[in-house]
């Protein structure tokens, strides 16, 4: 799949932002006043910034509001509704915390649940697609949720939780790559099922081999650009190592180092967040770039 920068930015930033909102809604940290303002400003900048970035890849962004209408069947529509609901509920909760020094517990818990639901619905947009076996796995939502929670704990300053959640997210990430590498073969979709030629159908043709002889056009097209992206595959292993190191290993190290000085401690936490964001962005780039769409079979590209 073509790794559109807008979608990578969106899943990375929104995941982090909604992760932070989840922790804030649960009352970790239970901040009020100016400190709360800073926390909510960061969370909203990330979540809303990500959502805005996601509209850049639309062909007709001016009609984006229509995307809220089909929640009965469409995960993309559900995601939009969840995101708006989460931002509104958490906005109210934030107003209470910042200006009224109030902790409206029920509202916070509802906001936290909606924030997590937003991340889950985002992941389901990808998970639902049978056409991309690497995404069509139960591990996909687990990966999105664990990364979002780890990033949220990191930003919320819950260091002891962050270490364990980062470890968990790193493990899920490894499992996702491991299982994903065999997903296309396990799906059972081949050039023979795609074309019905030479094999599965009819004893007369059994044992025959099929290969793509000529594509429909000598030039490229939307399908090849969008679904048969192969650039950078050869660096996949290195990029996985970079994603794992920057996204999970380094932040854990930054958090685990014993620091006496409060300033250095904050600086280290800042490094941890930056490193985590870059690592997750690299992982999301791989999430798209390595995803093989079955339509590539018709072009002999799988």
């Amino acid at each position: 799949m073509h790794p559109a920068p807008s979608v990578i930015l969106f899943t990375t930033l929104s995941g982090l932002g909604f992760g932070l909102l989840t922790f804030l809604g649960l009352g970790y940290p239970g901040v009020t006043g100016w400190v709360a303002f800073v926390f909510y400003a960061i969370a909203y900048a990330l979540a809303v910034g990500g959502l805005l970035a996601s509209t850049f890849h639309l062909g007709r962004p001016e009609r984006a509001l229509k995307a809220f209408s089909q929640w009965k069947t469409s995960w993309l529509s559900r995601e939009g509704l969840c995101a708006v609901a989460a931002l509104m509920v958490m906005g109210l909760f934030a107003l209470g915390a910042i200006f009224l020094q109030q902790d409206w517990r029920l509202l916070g818990i509802l906001g936290a649940a909606l924030s997590l639901a937003t991340v889950f619905t985002t992941s389901m947009i990808y998970t639902q697609l049978k056409t991309i076996p690497r995404w069509n796995m139960a591990l996909t939502p687990v990966m999105f949720l664990s990364v979002s929670l780890a990033g949220g704990a990191l930003l919320a300053g819950k260091e002891s939780w962050a270490i364990w959640l980062l470890l968990l997210a790193g493990a899920v990430q490894l499992a996702y790559w491991g299982k994903g590498d065999g997903a296309f073969a396990a799906s059972g979709t081949t050039m023979k099922t795609a074309t019905g030629l030479g094999g599965n159908l009819g004893a007369k043709q059994s044992g025959a081999t099929v290969r793509a002889f000529e594509p429909p056009h000598t030039g490229s097209n939307y399908l090849l650009r969008e679904f048969v992206y192969v650039v950078g595959r050869k660096h996949a292993f290195k990029l996985r190592a970079i994603a794992l190191t920057l996204g999970f290993a380094l932040p854990i190290l930054f958090l685990a180092l014993p620091m006496e000085n409060l300033l250095i401690k904050h600086l280290m936490a800042g490094f941890a967040v930056l490193s985590h964001m870059i690592g997750v962005a690299v992982s999301r780039w791989l999430f798209f770039a390595q995803a093989e769409h079955v339509v590539g079979l018709y072009y002999g590209k799988r």
Binding site: M1, H57, L58, G59, R60, P61, R63, A64, K66, A67, L76, I125, Q128, L129, K130, T131, I132, T189, A194, N221, Y222, L223, E226, F227, H293, V294, V295, Y298
Partner: peptide, 23 residues
């Protein structure tokens, strides 16, 4: 149509194409 492309992603046959001029 907002041109999000998700329907083309979901089609195994490559039957849908986003028109670049019209979006």
């Amino acid at each position: 149509c907002i041109g999000c492309g998700l329907c083309a992603w979901s089609c195994p046959y490559g039957a849908r194409e986003l028109d670049l001029a019209e979006g």
